[in-house]
């Protein structure tokens, strides 16, 4: 029973057992059928990674195109030791922690609202798909326009409600600028989290709540002991998606803040982009890209392990 349950919970992450064990022609069919997919993926995974290793371990500055001495880990060391890396790393950690917490909180609370009966909730169940459908750079443009310091509709709204005395320069303030990114990110990705949580909530058998109610359990107890265990696998998957997603956020920064003011919103992937495309230092850019990839891969592996433990012990 426990085994079956764990397999079921791990469903999204591992491959179930296939029944058929083909021989001869079928065996060939199996390889043939995955060949095109493998080729595509290999061309854009194996070669680029190998190429990046070469770039990262050599000197590749486009302003000095014919000089590529081997430098070992010097690029990596220089990037790791630089002030900007530490700044960008810290900014990225803060940003990622904020979006993970906000998106998960949004997903859990909003999905509960969507799960209610009534017309408003029904309307919102449809409406919530819209931010998900809108490309992330478009979301960035929309929010940039809303947060506009001089003509933005948010400033006008807040002033007319008496919440702020005068117009605020959202993008000119090193504390508010990251906040605008978090809000835009939650607007864009929170709905997906809510839809996923809602899908899970709808799978919880109704009678569990009814018996909890009859037994005199509080709403909180029902949430803690019935809802949360059901939501847990979904929340863990969201945790992975959001951590990795937050860590490699680029589009919103490019559109909304350009890393500024100063370097207040200069996240790691923006820093890598600037290193490559502005300073034309491919070696350092590749080294930085490796560091980002290592961190996201490491995080994903930790989480997948957590998921497995979770599946084994629940």
């Amino acid at each position: 029973m426990a085994r079956a349950n764990s397999r079921q919970r791990l469903g999204p992450l591992i491959l179930g057992r296939a029944t058929a064990r083909p021989r001869g022609r079928l065996q060939w069919y199996a390889y043939l059928s995955i060949l095109p997919a493998l080729c595509f993926v290999a061309l854009f995974a194996v070669y680029p990674v190998a190429f990046s290793v070469r770039l990262a371990t050599h000197r590749y500055v486009l302003t000095d195109p014919h000089n590529h001495p081997f430098e070992g880990l010097r690029n990596v060391a220089e990037v790791l030791g630089s002030y900007y890396f530490r700044r960008a790393g810290l900014t990225t950690l803060t940003f990622t922690a904020s979006v993970v917490a906000s998106v998960l909180a949004f997903g859990v609370t909003v999905s509960h609202y969507l799960n209610r009966p009534g017309r408003l909730a029904g309307f919102l169940r449809v409406a919530i798909l819209l931010p998900w459908a809108i490309p992330v750079v478009m979301a960035g443009i929309i929010w940039k326009w809303i947060f506009n310091g001089n003509y933005g509709v948010l400033n006008a709204l807040l002033v007319s409600l008496g919440l702020i005395p005068s117009y605020v320069s959202w993008f000119g303030n090193p504390i508010l600028a990251p906040l605008t990114l978090v809000i835009a990110h939650v607007w864009k990705w929170g709905p997906l989290a809510a839809i996923m949580c809602l899908a899970t909530l709808q799978a919880v058998p109704r009678d569990l709540y009814e018996s909890a109610h009859i037994d005199g359990g509080s709403g909180w107890a029902a949430f803690r002991y019935i809802t949360l265990p059901f939501l847990r696998p979904t929340l863990l998957i969201l945790l992975i998606l959001e951590t990795v997603g937050g860590f490699v956020t680029f589009d919103l920064v490019y559109v909304m803040t350009g890393g500024g003011p100063g370097d207040a919103t200069s996240l790691l992937s923006w820093f890598a982009y600037a290193e490559i495309f502005r300073f034309l230092d491919l070696g350092k850019g590749a080294a930085l890209a490796f560091i980002i990839a290592a961190v996201t891969l490491g995080l994903s592996l930790v989480y997948v392990r957590l998921l497995r433990l979770e599946a084994l012990y629940s």
């Binding site: 070669y47 680029p48 990674v49 770039l55 590749a286 990839a293 891969l297």
Partner: peptide
Amino acid sequence: IPAISVAIP
């Protein structure tokens, strides 16, 4: 692998 990591290759 993050998209930005393999941009150059």
